[in-house]
Structures are given as structure tokens and as C-alpha cells.
């Protein structure tokens, strides 16, 4: 059984606002399936005494002191923006989109 379906790939593409053709869906679904199958092999050797790993380094509590550091200038900030107005990034119309809280 495939590790990821064509429908799931289409759903992910939609969430990422990527225009993916029908042919590309077939291609990506196949490629992602190979990747996921390979990763799944790692899961097979994981025993109950091995906790899921999210970080490759055994570190915790890396903090920064609450001290102000220099910011970029607005010119630098907007230098890579495709479009800007009134010192703000200009983005296309947003409608029926989701907003985080």
C-alpha cells in the first residue's frame, strides 16, 4: 500500500497554494511514496525503549538574554520584496484565507 495517496498530495499542494497539474500529482505522489517508505524503515527498528527523536543534538534550554540588537533598515527589509508600498510589503488579495491566532 502506498504511504501517501494522490489525494493527500493534492491536499498538501492546496494548503501550500501550489498549482500542481494532474501529471505532476502522479509524479509527486510516486516520489513522495518512495521517500516515505524509506523513512518508514527506520520506524521498523525503533523499539519501545527508543523515544521519538525530534532533535539531533541532546541539548535543552538554549536561551538568549533579553537585550536589544540592531534591526535592519526598512530599505534592507524591503529589498527582496516583490512589491512594496508605504514601507510595507504589498501582497495580493487575501480572501477566505486562514488566520493564525
Amino acid at each position: 500500500m502506498a504511504a501517501i495517496s494522490r489525494e493527500e498530495v493534492a491536499h498538501l499542494a492546496r494548503l501550500s497554494r501550489l498549482a500542481v497539474t494532474e501529471e505532476e500529482l502522479d509524479t509527486f505522489a510516486g516520489q513522495l511514496d518512495v521517500i516515505l517508505q524509506a523513512v518508514a524503515q527506520v520506524g521498523e527498528v525503533a523499539a519501545a525503549d527508543i523515544p521519538p527523536t525530534s532533535h539531533s543534538v541532546p541539548l535543552t534550554n538554549i536561551f538568549r538574554e533579553d537585550v536589544v540588537t540592531p534591526c535592519l533598515t526598512p530599505e534592507e527589509v524591503l529589498s527582496g520584496a516583490p512589491d512594496a508600498e508605504d514601507q510595507r510589503f504589498r501582497v495580493p488579495r487575501i480572501l477566505t484565507e486562514d488566520v493564525a491566532s
Binding site: 534591526c71 526598512p74 510595507r88
Partner: peptide, 16 residues
């Protein structure tokens, strides 16, 4: 990051 948090300020002047 170390950007300041004070209220107000010109747009995009407190970013890094």
C-alpha cells in the same frame, strides 16, 4: 530575536 518590542514605530523598522 533581539528586535525591540515597543508599541508604535514606523512600519518594518523593528525587524531582522
Amino acid at each position: 530575536c533581539g528586535c525591540p518590542t515597543d508599541f508604535g514605530g514606523e512600519p518594518n523598522t523593528r525587524v531582522c
